[in-house]
């Protein structure tokens, strides 16, 4: 992995002040972190923990009270760096009177892109985010999920090196979430750096290489996802369904090795995987009721 750092934040503090300059909220308190090229970095934290503030500081939408920010080696207030950055805001703040094509064309024009390039790129992105059927409709008619998609397309119009995603999966159905996660991973595969912030932990877990958890404007935890989640003194065995005798035998074997059995039960699938499976089945066999992989099914067989 390339070790070049894309984002460098040191001692970043942000204090919101009221009209009279009195301190209102300390949104970030000497935050330092670094994002390396090619990784997917997740900023986690409950609402109001300073995730979005950090992103906005990186983009120069807010000005830091203290500390320093370097994005792609340049200060955050520098506009030229935006040439290589894509940003998906928390809610897609897009011009509601434009349609998908016009939106992408407009944002494309802000970069040094020829008309030809813009046309190709936007057609490609519209297909990729799955809005081909709605590209002539004005954005005000879009559903929440569709706006997120066009928002992502907009962020990627300039084929950026660094993508900043604010709650990329919020408001999406599980299918959309899955698409989004797939596309984020695809970006990584193309060698791009992604910084996303979210409070939907499962999503973060699925895609992020490294995460940082913020609370009350302060950094609490940072590291690789596997490292942080690996339970060092436990072993998990997953087998096909066993009879009660077999379980007893295993318990004895474990005891023999000075081990201790924690819990043994039948694992349940996540609701997410059930939902995805259902949708998948429905597509393959339309008109039939989906029968989940349960005991009844086995019994019937």
């Amino acid at each position: 992995m390339d070790n070049e750092s894309v984002i460098q934040i040191s001692n970043l503090t942000k204090i919101y002040r009221d009209f009279w300059g009195r301190k209102k909220v300390r949104a970030l308190n000497s935050l330092s972190l670094e994002v390396k090229k090619g990784e997917i970095f997740g900023l986690l934290g409950p609402n109001g923990s300073g995730k979005t503030t950090t992103l906005k500081l990186l983009l120069g939408l807010l000005f830091p009270s203290e500390g320093e920010i370097k994005v792609l080696g340049q200060p955050a207030s520098n506009v030229e760096k935006n040439e290589h950055i894509g940003y998906l805001p928390e809610e897609s703040y897009l011009y509601r009177f434009l349609n998908a094509e016009e939106t992408l064309d407009f944002y494309g024009r802000l970069f040094k892109m020829s008309a030809e390039e813009r046309r190709e790129r936007s057609a490609e992105l519209i297909e990729k985010v799955g809005l081909g059927h709605a590209k002539k409709r004005q954005l005000k008619e879009y559903s929440k999920g569709m706006t997120r998609r066009i928002g992502l397309a907009q962020a990627l119009i300039n084929n950026p090196d660094l993508v900043l995603l604010d709650e990329p999966t919020s408001g999406l159905d599980p299918l959309g979430t899955d698409d989004m996660k797939r596309m984020i991973l695809e970006l990584k595969a193309q060698g791009k750096t992604v910084l996303m912030c979210s409070h939907l932990l499962a999503d973060v877990q699925d895609v992020c290489d490294r995460i940082a958890i913020l609370y009350g404007g302060e950094l609490k935890v940072m590291g690789r996802v596997e490292d942080l989640l690996k339970e060092q003194d436990e072993t998990q065995i997953l087998t096909s369904r066993l009879s009660d005798e077999a379980i007893k035998e295993i318990e004895q074997v474990v005891a023999k090795h000075n081990g201790k059995v924690g819990t043994i039960d039948h694992p349940t699938a996540t609701l997410e995987s059930l939902f995805l499976k259902t949708v998948q089945e429905s597509k393959e066999r339309p008109g039939q009721r989906f029968v989940p992989d349960t005991q009844e099914k086995k019994a019937a067989e």
Binding site: N82, Y87, L94, L110, N158
Partner: peptide
């Protein structure tokens, strides 16, 4: 409406 966010985060003065 913060639509300006998507514009100023492009290389636009």
């Amino acid at each position: 409406l913060r639509t300006i966010h998507t514009v100023v985060t492009k290389p636009v003065y």
